[in-house]
Design a protein around this nucleic acid. Sequence first.
DNA 1: GTACGGAAGAAAAACGTTTTTGTGTAGCTG
DNA 2: CAGCTACACAAAAACGTTTTTCTTCCGTAC
Lengths: 350, 350
Amino acid sequence: MARELQHGATIWDVARKAGVSITTVSHSLNGKGNISEATRERVRAVASEMGYVADAMARGLRSSKMNAIGLVFRSLDSLGNYGPNGVDVFMKLAGAAAAETLNRNLGLMLVPDLSRGPLPPFSMSLDGYIVFAPHLDDPVVALLEKRGIPYVTWDRDPGRPDFRNWVAHDDAASTRVVLNHLAAAGAGSIAYVGGTDRNAWNFDCEAAYVAWCLETGKEPRIYHVPERDGVEGGRQVGARILGDGMPGAVFCLTGRHASGAAQAMQECGVRIPGDLLVCTGSDSEHSRQHKPPISALDVDIPAAAAALVERLCEVMEGKSGSDPVLLVARFLHRKSTSPGKTRNQQKRGF
Amino acid sequence: MARELQHGATIWDVARKAGVSITTVSHSLNGKGNISEATRERVRAVASEMGYVADAMARGLRSSKMNAIGLVFRSLDSLGNYGPNGVDVFMKLAGAAAAETLNRNLGLMLVPDLSRGPLPPFSMSLDGYIVFAPHLDDPVVALLEKRGIPYVTWDRDPGRPDFRNWVAHDDAASTRVVLNHLAAAGAGSIAYVGGTDRNAWNFDCEAAYVAWCLETGKEPRIYHVPERDGVEGGRQVGARILGDGMPGAVFCLTGRHASGAAQAMQECGVRIPGDLLVCTGSDSEHSRQHKPPISALDVDIPAAAAALVERLCEVMEGKSGSDPVLLVARFLHRKSTSPGKTRNQQKRGF
DNA sequence: GTACGGAAGAAAAACGTTTTTGTGTAGCTG
DNA sequence: CAGCTACACAAAAACGTTTTTCTTCCGTAC
């Protein structure tokens, strides 16, 4: 008994105890085959009493399904560490995806980096992958493609226009929301600060910014800061922007850059939102904690996770031809982009 | 060929192509058996040319090892969501653990919550578990124990004094470091703010605080705030502390509480560190971003992950009898506990 | 009385490895 | 030259399931 529990009872143990064959046990438990309700119930009772759980590997081997998917964060891989940067979105997504996959009786495996070194033992046996923020010509995507492993991506892969199994925000639309908001709040000129990773987010937002400037007859002012430079990179670009002449507003794609830029400029005496509006394209602890809090676009993470997992399941079942899923980012209107307010309202932001 | 890659080449395909038996392939690739170097090399070449990777499930089935471990975050499970609270430590640890397990050719599976609902399909087949911050009488620990699945915990399980496979900070020592630091910086009385989760961290820190007060002849002032109340809970306790009479320093276990408490008190005109010193027992984005930055104890996450994985591997190999691993928390001395400094030094904190 | 058919379940094959056991040849010893 | 050892590899068993095929029993229709 102790021994039986030690390494898990097998289907044979259950069969013996219930006085039936292993076929009957398997069929009873999986609701298949042609088994009388009485037997089925009896077998179920015995199994649950023994705490029997089918061995995942044996089951997987037979059905050639692992019942688990992989999650790989390209943006973090590129950062070279799993530090606090971009933590928000990673953590929330990993958690939400784990919850979501669990609902479907799938495991979620964290896969650090498939693109270098020997492959992790499990990586090629997983049923599918969620690839978060693939780069241009991402080697991980190429590997999955070559192996014929189903995958979906968060954000489209900028190097694969034909690939359609992705979920993302409508970055163009979101960018316009922000720019229109800033313009309506009184910003005459708007500087744009993007990252340097070659992913769709950076590409699409910048393209939308340029298009918007063209339409509205404004002169584009574009800055780039490497993602990995974080708050400090933001500070530096803040100084550069100030040196080039203060705009009416700054739109920084990442929250860390926005926070750093705002910080540097505030230290030079710039008042936010009095003299300058600041907004970021991705909400994070930095934008929330800044004084004043910085307006931001925000991902509806549970929705994103749900859409990704759902789509991946479709792909794994062989369904194809669906269109990409475009989610709408929420715009969080905070103090940093409130037009013409006075001091005493800054007490607690929004 | 396309078909072969489609679902992965098997050991038979490699054997056929190399003109040997599957035994020889297996032995060649795993460096076992008695195979001439020439054959070994040839088989290796064929295998890698075909992109052959042994099926994880077949291998696992045979050797009854899954080559993957589970990671379960009890503190987050108790929060009921995987939101931004406590993100720092989760994210860093998950990443560091993933990197660490990868080095040992192990997969890392995220397991949301084992204590309710039907068991995830994989959960009972994993080779071992890292349980982060188990509660008192944690049901997840009980389950693993009953199943005989090896596990280690971060922080000891307060309900299992005999269990020794854990890694943690020396909370008692760390608490004394903080308290002595605060006292040396001039704090006459020190209020303590702990959480309400029934885990070892809360227990041990509070016990150490009480002991320290006894030794130094100070009157303990203890407050509790539920972990899930976050910054807002911190604000409320800040107000309560002020109502009870301002101490010389406040030591909040969690960074969110510290930030909230500091914020609330600052809004009432309290100057930090001029009038009051504030320190937290766990560094986070909140403590770093606060104005002024809040001194904190910090986990050396990579070291913690390394120790946990190392210990788990030992346990999985059947080694036992080792003592718990006690790590030393770093104390990050920041502006919020700097005695008697003047205004212009607050520019950028530390 | 025999053939048919469906119900209920058992036997056996299959999944892709690893590991144990077998086998044939070559080289050496006495 | 018989017998032993070492070598290089092959055959087969085993891991614990799921699934396909096979058996048995029984009732019913012809």
